[in-house]
Amino acid sequence: MDCGICYAYQLDGTIPDQVCDNSQCGQPFHQICLYEWLRGLLTSRQSFNIIFGECPYCSKPITLKMS
């Protein structure tokens, strides 16, 4: 499936590997796309290497662990 942010399947050789945990959403994202999206939200917060925010599609909580 394509990334829900950039709408591409491959981005710099990677495929969407982050998925919204909401079973009714399940939208996939590239890690870098989701990172940039969450960084741009005023409501997002970060604790060590984990960013907490809202899914761009369903607005439910989503987390991103940076590797």
Results as ranks from 00 to 15, higher is better:
Asp2Val: 08
Asp2Arg: 09
Cys3Gly: 01
Cys3Leu: 00
Cys3Tyr: 00
Cys3Trp: 01
Cys3Asp: 03
Ile5Trp: 01
Ile5Ser: 02
Ile5Leu: 15
Ile5Val: 08
Cys6Ile: 03
Tyr7Val: 02
Tyr7Gly: 09
Tyr7Glu: 08
Tyr7Phe: 14
Tyr7Thr: 11
Tyr7Asp: 09
Tyr7Asn: 12
Tyr7Cys: 13
Tyr7His: 11
Tyr7Arg: 15
Ala8Gln: 14
Ala8Tyr: 15
Ala8Phe: 02
Tyr9Gly: 09
Gln10Gly: 05
Gln10Tyr: 11
Gln10Glu: 11
Gln10Ala: 11
Leu11Gly: 01
Leu11Glu: 03
Leu11Val: 11
Leu11Ala: 07
Leu11Ile: 15
Asp12His: 03
Asp12Arg: 13
Asp12Leu: 07
Gly13His: 05
Gly13Met: 02
Gly13Leu: 04
Thr14Val: 09
Thr14Asn: 09
Thr14Met: 14
Thr14Gln: 14
Thr14Lys: 10
Thr14His: 11
Thr14Asp: 11
Ile15Val: 09
Ile15Lys: 07
Ile15Asp: 05
Pro16Asp: 02
Pro16Ala: 04
Asp17Glu: 07
Asp17Pro: 02
Asp17Gly: 03
Gln18Ile: 14
Gln18Thr: 11
Gln18Ala: 06
Gln18Cys: 05
Val19Ala: 08
Val19Ser: 10
Val19Pro: 03
Val19His: 15
Val19Phe: 12
Val19Cys: 04
Cys20Tyr: 03
Cys20Asp: 01
Cys20Pro: 01
Cys20Glu: 02
Asp21Pro: 11
Asp21Tyr: 08
Asp21Ala: 06
Asp21Phe: 11
Asp21Met: 15
Asn22Trp: 04
Asn22Gly: 04
Asn22Ser: 04
Asn22Glu: 00
Ser23Phe: 12
Gln24Glu: 07
Gln24His: 07
Cys25Asn: 00
Cys25Gly: 02
Gly26Gln: 13
Gly26Ala: 05
Gln27Thr: 11
Gln27Pro: 01
Gln27Glu: 03
Gln27His: 03
Pro28Thr: 04
Pro28Phe: 07
Pro28Arg: 11
Pro28Leu: 12
Pro28Cys: 09
Phe29Pro: 01
Phe29Gly: 00
His30Asp: 02
His30Met: 01
His30Arg: 00
His30Trp: 00
His30Ser: 00
Gln31Ile: 12
Gln31Glu: 09
Gln31Met: 05
Gln31Asn: 03
Ile32Pro: 01
Ile32Glu: 09
Ile32Gly: 13
Ile32Arg: 14
Ile32Gln: 15
Ile32Trp: 11
Cys33Phe: 01
Leu34Met: 03
Leu34Trp: 02
Leu34Glu: 01
Tyr35Gln: 07
Tyr35Met: 06
Tyr35Trp: 05
Tyr35Arg: 10
Tyr35Glu: 06
Glu36Met: 03
Glu36Asn: 15
Glu36Phe: 14
Glu36Asp: 15
Trp37Arg: 02
Trp37Pro: 00
Trp37Gly: 03
Trp37Glu: 02
Leu38Gln: 08
Leu38Lys: 04
Leu38Phe: 10
Leu38Thr: 15
Leu38Gly: 05
Leu38Arg: 04
Arg39Lys: 11
Arg39Ser: 13
Arg39Pro: 05
Arg39Tyr: 05
Arg39Ile: 03
Gly40Glu: 15
Gly40Val: 08
Gly40Lys: 14
Leu41Arg: 14
Leu42Gln: 14
Leu42Trp: 10
Leu42Met: 08
Thr43Met: 02
Thr43Tyr: 12
Thr43Ser: 11
Thr43Pro: 05
Thr43Arg: 07
Ser44Phe: 15
Ser44Ile: 05
Ser44Cys: 05
Ser44Arg: 12
Arg45His: 06
Arg45Glu: 07
Arg45Thr: 15
Gln46Pro: 04
Gln46Val: 14
Gln46Ile: 12
Ser47Leu: 10
Ser47Ala: 10
Ser47Ile: 07
Phe48Ala: 10
Phe48Arg: 11
Phe48Leu: 12
Ile50Ala: 10
Ile50Met: 13
Ile50Thr: 10
Ile50Asp: 13
Phe52Ala: 15
Gly53Ser: 06
Gly53Glu: 01
Cys55Ala: 00
Cys55Arg: 05
Pro56Lys: 08
Tyr57Trp: 05
Tyr57Gly: 11
Tyr57Ser: 14
Tyr57Ala: 14
Cys58Arg: 00
Ser59Thr: 15
Ser59Phe: 10
Ser59Ile: 05
Ser59His: 14
Ser59Gly: 12
Ser59Glu: 13
Ser59Trp: 13
Pro61Val: 03
Pro61Arg: 15
Pro61His: 01
Ile62Gln: 00
Ile62Arg: 02
Ile62Glu: 02
Ile62Met: 11
Thr63Val: 04
Thr63Ser: 05
Lys65Ala: 09
Met66Gly: 14
Met66Lys: 13
